[in-house]
Design a protein around this nucleic acid. Sequence first.
DNA 1: GTGGTCTAGACCACT
DNA 2: GTGGTCTAGACCACG
Lengths: 129, 129, 129, 129
Amino acid sequence: MIIINERSPLPIYEQIVQQMKEAILKGVLQGGEKLPSVRELSANLLVNPNTVSKAYQELERHGVIETLRGKGTFVSRHPVPRMEQERLEQFQNSLRQLAIEAFYLGIDAEQFKQWVDEYMKELGREKHA
Amino acid sequence: MIIINERSPLPIYEQIVQQMKEAILKGVLQGGEKLPSVRELSANLLVNPNTVSKAYQELERHGVIETLRGKGTFVSRHPVPRMEQERLEQFQNSLRQLAIEAFYLGIDAEQFKQWVDEYMKELGREKHA
Amino acid sequence: MIIINERSPLPIYEQIVQQMKEAILKGVLQGGEKLPSVRELSANLLVNPNTVSKAYQELERHGVIETLRGKGTFVSRHPVPRMEQERLEQFQNSLRQLAIEAFYLGIDAEQFKQWVDEYMKELGREKHA
Amino acid sequence: MIIINERSPLPIYEQIVQQMKEAILKGVLQGGEKLPSVRELSANLLVNPNTVSKAYQELERHGVIETLRGKGTFVSRHPVPRMEQERLEQFQNSLRQLAIEAFYLGIDAEQFKQWVDEYMKELGREKHA
DNA sequence: GTGGTCTAGACCACT
DNA sequence: GTGGTCTAGACCACG
């Protein structure tokens, strides 16, 4: 189930991308499973079909989903990271910024790492079920 | 020294905010120290004064710097986190998203936490010097 | 043997057309040989009969195969290029675009021409066997 | 100068992408040069701004152009190939198909390679001027 | 039925 | 001024 927050500064299509990725990692969406069609999901979320389409295209560029001609869109069975170099750099930059923010919020390294563990476990848990 | 990357998707004013915060944490800028004026810094960085002004406003909202009417802008001596609740939630959301990206990039919890340690230590190191 | 890649951006009927052409050039399919019926091939490839039908129509328009009413579809004995002017222009346009991509990929003219030789020889080899 | 062919099966945004790449390689557009704004070009070509925007975003993903926040879009000074692996495979597939087409059009390897030389030289010629 | 493209027109953040 | 996002609604190729 995807929830759109219209007030979020994050573009709607990015919200879809992120929540889809999360759902797939958590096993809510399994490899090979069919995703709702663009029209279906757009009606469901009350957003424009173009917005959903943009999200699907980004997910496909990231290798997370695949479109089968005329059949629809499916979760990739064997996702292979794409643009790994660029995305790795982005990841590290984001993490650096989070470290700065943590300091100002009075979060120490222990607390930080504890959350990392927690979130990583949440994602991995049901995947192998 | 602040370095602006015009190609970054991060708004320039955010780049200033983040690098200011980093400089303060690292002790490059000390509590009570006077910051360059908006005009000065904007000339220095070759950016629009409005951009620097926006950065200073955000830093002030975050309680990191203080403006003394007619005297200038100064690094706060005892920064107290503001909007802690809201920013804490943002922090956790960002961390959650990073965890998802980490999975897709094949980064495991150990590697992730090692980087957290590394970055947190970088920040703390010179502050206590 | 034709292999369909449902993930390819190339329409399925085009995949059939191209692989048929390749098989004929390589001598896997000989001039005068009978092709499987639309039904047969579509069952074989697990694709919609309309898709195979569309492929056969394009092959016939290109003069590569011939339909004999009531008898079936056959590989042309003496294929004569049709719409030569139009297809020649398309060929040159495609080649021009490939040259542009080659530049951006850092492929020089020597490498490019070496591949041309390689692929052309692959096609010609078995034909004269 | 970009020319849109509304009858072409190639999407308009792809026509823009290809012709931009060609113009840059030929040196018509120099590294660092400012491109027309989205609105400007769209008015110029009589197409929708969204279409031009889509083309610019694809060019940026390919590392050919860069957008500077609030300033506009510029030709990259040092384009670095992106997604090289995928694009290289696409390149080779396209070349293989062209080889097949060449056979049916009666184009031999010599003629083919001569055109390769011709087109590659066209692109490189004015670049170093 | 599916996704992909395009138009027309609006709003927003950033500089 | 710039590009980025979103909506509404249309058309098309593919299967």
